[in-house]
């Protein structure tokens, strides 16, 4: 179903339906994340990916118009490039640990400590929250700085546009 949605996004040229399909895609991704036990991430993906980004894209479409022009005349070069990269990556993934292997390095490094000590050290039963806000608090601070910078950037870009319009009158 996800593959069908992605194919439809590639083929579809009306940008409005592409945006709606992107929202559908985000919800499907959130479902997959729930199946992978990542409930916090699924929640964020459903609200941010399917909610906020759809609103942003619709706003941009309102300002830019919604039809895509014809596809480029020669789609073969990008297709070949993509297929070569796919082949290389599939070859690379064969060296990675198998799905759900408890001995994989990802499960043996810091994580056992988080899972056993987090409740005692931070008092938060949800380990994701404990790591996000406590162990990796500086990461989250940096993330906030990134979002703040992006907000400033958007305001600066769109305000200049409004002022330019007033000058034009």
């Amino acid at each position: 179903m996800m593959a069908a949605t992605v194919l439809a996004i590639i083929v579809q040229r009306n940008l409005f339906s592409v945006v709606v399909l992107a929202g559908v895609y985000s919800f499907l991704m959130a479902t997959v994340l729930v199946a992978l036990d990542a409930v916090d991430v699924a929640m964020t993906e459903a609200s941010v990916g399917a909610g906020i980004s759809t609103v942003l894209l619709l706003g941009a479409l309102y300002l830019c118009g919604g039809e895509e022009a014809k596809p480029l005349s020669r789609p073969w070069l990008p297709l070949v490039v993509t297929l070569v990269i796919v082949a290389a990556l599939v070859y690379g993934t064969l060296g990675l640990p198998a799905f759900s292997d408890p001995q994989a390095p990802i499960h043996t490094h810091v994580v056992p400590r988080y899972l056993t000590q987090a409740l005692a050290e931070t008092g938060v039963p949800n380990v994701v929250t404990a790591v996000l806000a406590s162990y990796r608090g500086y990461d989250t601070l940096g993330e906030t700085v990134v979002v703040f910078t992006a907000g400033i950037g958007v305001i600066a870009l769109l305000r200049r546009r409004r002022r330019g319009k007033e000058d034009g009158k």
Binding site: D40, I106, Y114, V128, T140
Partner: peptide, 11 residues
């Protein structure tokens, strides 16, 4: 399941 990737992906 492993909480560390969840945190990174939330960011």
């Amino acid at each position: 399941s492993n909480p560390l990737p969840h945190v990174l992906i939330l960011t």
